[in-house]
Design a protein around this nucleic acid. Sequence first.
RNA 1: GCUCUGGUGGUGUAGUCCGGCCAAUCAUCUUGCCCUCUCACGGCAAGGACCAGGGUUCAAAUCCCUGCCGGAGCACCA
Length: 526
Amino acid sequence: MNETERRERLGELAPERLAELEADDEEDERVLPDLPNAEAGEVVMRAAPNPNGPWHIGHARMPAVIGTYKERYDGEFICRFDDTDPETKRPDLDAYDAILSDIEYLGFEADRVLRASDRLETYYEHARELIEHGGAYTCSCSGEAFSALKNDGEACPHREKDEEIIREEFEAMVDGEYAAGEMVLRVRTDIDHKNPALRDWVAFRMIDTPHPREAAADYRCWPMLDFQSGVDDHLTGVTHIIRGIDLQDSAKRQRFVYDYFGWEYPEVLHWGHVQLDEYGVSLSTSTIKELIEAGELTGWDDPRAPTIRSVRRRGIRGEALVESMTDLGMSTSDVDLAMSSVYANNRDLVDDEADRFFLVRDRADDPAVELSVVDGDAPAPAAGRPARHPEHPDRGDRTIPAGRVRLESSDLPPTGERVWLKGYGCVRHADDELVYVDADIDVVRDGDVDVVHWVPAAESLGTLLRTVEGDVRGYAEPEIADAETDAVVQFERIGFARLDSFDPAGTDEPDGPTGEEDLIAYFAHP
RNA sequence: GCUCUGGUGGUGUAGUCCGGCCAAUCAUCUUGCCCUCUCACGGCAAGGACCAGGGUUCAAAUCCCUGCCGGAGCACCA
């Protein structure tokens, strides 16, 4: 008895036991651990992206995990753009919407969307309050000078400044009366704390460059992440924070502020960095941006780019990405995400609906060859009729005109040998033609003859298949023209692909679309 | 240098808190077979791991110590 039969039998004998078993299965699929101190209906989490570009694949982890927990606990998902550095991590105005669109593609929606750059007055208010509590002081030390003192566990002279002066100097910061580097506001923590990373960190600094968002362009005094994020997490009721190990010390830093305000710190989980195999390109927004600017990549959705837009264009469902991301769990060590796992998840999702078509590739090391199919021991039929989907005969057959056909040369058998043109019949390779052989399908079943894909020489669609490894040209069978743009199909014996456009315009990319193609498809995976 | 933090098959993960039922789970992966007019889907089978060394114990992936290796922070970046 196999598993299915066993279950059917159990269903007959003891339906309640079967239900238990199935409930267990569901439990087992919860790879993500339960959140500490989480109660249904009371969980609030946030993703806090820096909008300095569209997302790479690794970014999918945050919405995937938060979204999954949101569903489990009936919680709230906040998307807060931490755009508080108009200079070195300058926000990209298009990225705000690009990120929200990426989240939507993954199958989630933020319940609230906030921009830190809208909230400067709130941060100033809390800074003032912190100063009143004796929790912050203005400091005009240079970064190097302060660092030297700090590393020795020594306070700088500004630490004991009169509160009145601090207040005045901070208001001058807010009013933009200092230039970048002249004055900062520090949180008074513990100057000889054993961890140097926690000693009197900077909460606000001056930035001369205006913020790209018009609404925030007049501000010059900007909070640092630890202050802004810490205040916002409390104000927006965040109960559980998930962040990378690079922010391991943030909670410890922010606790000093929370203590001054008498706030309770949320639960925090850290996770390691995600690395991807498969791509030669680094998983970093700035690196990808540079490659695009240098013309090495054609854009954020270049199939070679490790971005969400790229996998989306290739026909990979957001759900597949989410499953792979939640499978990574919540470990604090760095993890490698195998793209094969994303592909396996996607294959499960698309295989059933993907109609089958033939694509004969024309590659330098395996060029397409053109031959005539001629009558042999029986007249050669005029066309082949392979099924649109092997498991859905109701979807009907395709009609592929024979006569003169193209094959990939590696599929062409040696002279004298036979090959089965899928959906058509058996042919024998003779000199420059294929001679029809009146053979039964048993020759295939017996393993004597290979089955290959093929297309008509004249009626096929010139196709550009864009893949992670680069572009491949080829010829797709005529009926693919009836498919919808955006459909995910399977090119038999090659793999799944998303139909991107018919009769596309040319581009000036080297080796890119010339405008001569009838079809552009993006390769998803085998 | 100081401070955090982690190490289960190729990859990810369960188990580690509360030692035994763990000769270690599940998925992916690789290989073989079956199915099949696809190298897809499906089915079957096989392969492959507790970082190392000590200690405690009747018993250690699990507790303790040491070592090795890795990641992160010590920014007027996020």
